[in-house]
Nucleic acid binder design. Structure first.
Lengths: 331, 331
DNA sequence: CTGTTAGCGCTTTCAG
DNA sequence: CTGAAAGCGCTAACAG
């Protein structure tokens, strides 16, 4: 179990050279069928499995890539990881997964650890300083998801369109005052979302305030509910779905029901129809993002990528059950 | 970007031997501080990063492990992956992630690909035939999660205890009639859960019926709501949380609110506090499962594991807001 | 403290 | 079609 059989042992037992054994596994077309057969059989017998590390050192290729995400428990990421994985498998790539728990130093640490043993890196919602990202990008091909750095291939899920629609939707329902619940200030996504909401509100002449819920999550949303109420708004748009749910729970605690007395819109649409009432949310195409990111990385690895790629995925509003006309509070 | 600087280049530029450069990175305590400084600096300048592949070949250790799960989008797994990752990081292990989409051949393929480049493997809910699992276990240390194979270290999540408590909980609230929503009939988990519910109901002299929701999921639960109502029960225990949410939604559609008019309990506790009202559920401690699995693997790697380990994790009931005393329907 | 010398296991020309 | 030989980049005794 510890010392694995090597190519030499197979060679000796099969009565051939090491080169032949090697070829039997990598270029079987180059040697006679019966030799392949013989080699494979004896390999099987002694439990020989090619050592990919040695192979990698020799060829300079190992087909491993690294994927770093801030929080795998955030339902936004699993579909992305899954689709990326799938795309990776197609090219027989193995993927290292790294979870940073939203901490920059852990992200840096993981990237550093990965960079010496991968052909390329995909950084999702990276919180690393730009120069640090560039450092890694200089070492190995890097693709970014939801982080916009010029010169580094990136796929961005642009919530702007969806957010704009969200504001319009609220306006149509009659809301005049809305509050935006902010995510991490360093997050590109948050910046996009905030900006879009701000613009739309201005255009529709709605009043806008904002409340922070950082790091985003159910608890942060729950805690933010008080301030949301104080804001005097009649509707909230949250940085993400989980935070939105927290707000709904927090409001309920204060006897403010959704959507009768307060409207709430989430973002990312990761909960789907799962909750009750079902959350109105800005959908994203994170599966597609994963697929495309890996595609870009593959292209990068085969030098097929020449120009600066900035792939933007649009979003849309999915209206469900947490939005309704505003409730006129007395007093 | 393609040809990375090697130890030799650093050595030459720094005017030392390759061994010294190597030591500057791996055993800095063995050489003078100023040499370390000098080496590190020139390395930095030319963008040298130790090649972990070469290092691995030389030392025979690379600290990589493989993790294979059936479906990363199933909310059951992310927390497990996350805790495993965390535990792995502590020992500077990097983890390969593999998603099988519940397909045996993909699982086999991933395991085969991983086995040549990892120190150990963790297989979650493996669908592989036992002999195949044993094959991999002979090649590399393997730890199983939710798969019970004698002789291979495994951690099992046992829903029985939690299910029993769920039934008791309902009994204490005053319920006399409960309905169990079945998952896949071939699923070991479902069998285990159904059996536990049946036993507990019998013991507490409660009447029990069952309704199928197969394949489990939100829609199946939603559709099952009608039958749940017809059953005459006042409470339901669902095979999993998602199905439970579907039932709640289905009941709501029929103007039966939870928990005032009907109590619902889920299983797996993957939704946490996310929903409103928050779902009462049977927790499965999958985080702990991940942590322990990795711990076992580490022990296995350092030959600290002697006897056959079969670690069983108990489950517990997490009472939240979807259970209440029974509503006495008129008529 | 630092340099020299062998490999780790595999692939890959280059000959036969 | 198969073998011999030369590394891939790094580490690890063993000397100095």
């Amino acid at each position: 179990m510890k010392n694995n059989p090597t190519i030499s042992q197979v060679a000796e037992l099969a009565g051939v050279s090491r080169a032949t054994v090697s070829r039997a596994f990598t270029r079987p077309d180059l040697i006679s069928a019966k030799t392949v057969e013989k080699v494979r059989k004896t390999a099987q017998e002694i439990g020989y499995v090619p050592n990919r590390v040695a192979r990698a050192l020799s060829t300079g290729r190992h087909g491993n890539i690294g994927l770093i995400v801030p929080d795998i428990s955030n339902p936004f990421f699993p579909p992305l990881i899954r689709s990326m994985q799938r795309e990776a498998d197609e090219a027989s790539f193995s993927v290292f997964i790294g979870n940073t728990d939203e901490q920059v130093d852990r992200e840096d640490q993981l990237a550093e650890r990965f960079v010496g043993q991968v052909e390329g890196l995909v950084l999702c919602s990276s919180r690393l300083p730009e120069e640090q990202v560039r450092y890694y990008a200089a070492l190995r091909p890097v693709v970014l998801v939801n982080r916009d750095i010029k010169g580094i291939p990136r796929v961005l899920i642009d919530s702007a369109a969806g957010m704009t629609k969200a504001v319009s939707h609220l306006a149509e329902l009659g809301h005049r005052s809305v509050v935006y619940i902010e995510g991490p200030s360093t997050s590109w996504s948050n910046q996009q979302r905030r900006l879009a909401v701000r613009k739309a509100a201005k255009k529709l002449k709605m009043s806008l305030t904002s409340v922070s819920a950082n790091p985003p999550g159910f608890d942060a949303g729950f805690l933010a509910a008080g301030k949301v109420l104080e804001s005097g708004a009649t509707a909230a748009i949250a940085f993400d779905d989980i935070t939105a749910q927290g707000i709904i729970a927090g409001l309920a605690k204060a006897d403010v029901s959704t959507p009768d007395k307060f409207s709430v819109i989430g973002c990312d649409d990761v909960l789907g129809a799962l909750t009750h009432p079902q959350l109105t949310s800005v959908s994203n195409s994170c599966e597609e993002a994963g697929r495309i990111a890996l595609h870009l990385l593959k292209d990068l690895l085969t030098s097929k990528l020449t120009s600066d790629v900035r792939y933007v995925l649009e979003t849309d509003l999915v209206v469900r059950e947490t939005t309704a006309p505003p409730f006129r509070r007395k007093k």
